[in-house]
Amino acid sequence: MVLSIVLSGLAIGCVYALIGIAYNVMYSASRVFSFTAGTLGMIGGVLGSLFILRMGLPVWAGFILALVGGALLGVVTEIVAVRPVLKSLDQHLYVLSTLALALIVQQFTAIEWSTDAQPFPRIFNIERNSFDQQYWLPMIACVVVIVGLELLYRRTLVGHAFRAIAEDNYAARALGLPERNLRMASYALAGVIGALAGFASGQMLLAFFANAPLLTFYGFVPVALGGMGNNRGAVVAGLVLGLFQQAANFLVGGIFASVAVFTVFILVLLARPDGLAGASAGRRV
């Protein structure tokens, strides 16, 4: 029993962490939190089910197409909902534009796909056991993304450029870096990460349009608690959130688990608006 709580807690925690990382990747490139983060996860699950179960494509093809779909949605987010309002960040119009886009995608999915949760295919044709693929797939996805991002950010020039626009957008532009293309690439990357989270957790969360708002909320919790733009904080906070939620689920029942998570989230945020790890970057003079 304890084992299954821990496994499912870690698995769902990895999904929250991945959505949190998707938030962070978009935030680093544009200083914008996007309501589409959870939608990216939802779309990964729905596209996976669509391509593999409904259209009968091989698993690998469905996987790649789902990620491509996520990347496309990321780019659309940047072009439609972020770029037009970047000039007036202080008016917070991005909150409304990304919310609108998230709702559009979500409602479209509900109507054209299904308003009910649809099954998601088994990825590997192996027998179920207590440590099933529905648990370890999200964990592997999370590790792959963390290692991949680390390599990208530390070892490649493009990754350095991503970090440069995150640290000082103005200096990066003055240096002649292609800031707009890098921002689009960041959104595409966030789309891939979100879709990967949705695909890897498909067997757990199913292909369901209503996963979008849930992931948008629960994926933001690690960002808020771990400190915005801080991927390590997001992973730790995501795992803690997953474990806490599953434990509360078992101990006090599902509905009050959500209430507990929400209450803790609000209380922590009110006490520490910059998150638990919240060392905000020093003022630049």
């Binding site: 440069a164 000082d168 200096a171 240096l175 292609p178």
Partner: peptide, 25 residues
């Protein structure tokens, strides 16, 4: 080339990486 005011280099990256960024294109 425009060297902006306030020596705004990318503090979290190495000297060489800062220069490589200037050589991006």
């Amino acid at each position: 080339a425009h060297v902006i005011e306030g020596h705004r280099v990318f503090t979290q990256q190495s000297v060489v990486d800062n220069l490589l960024l200037a050589a991006y294109d």
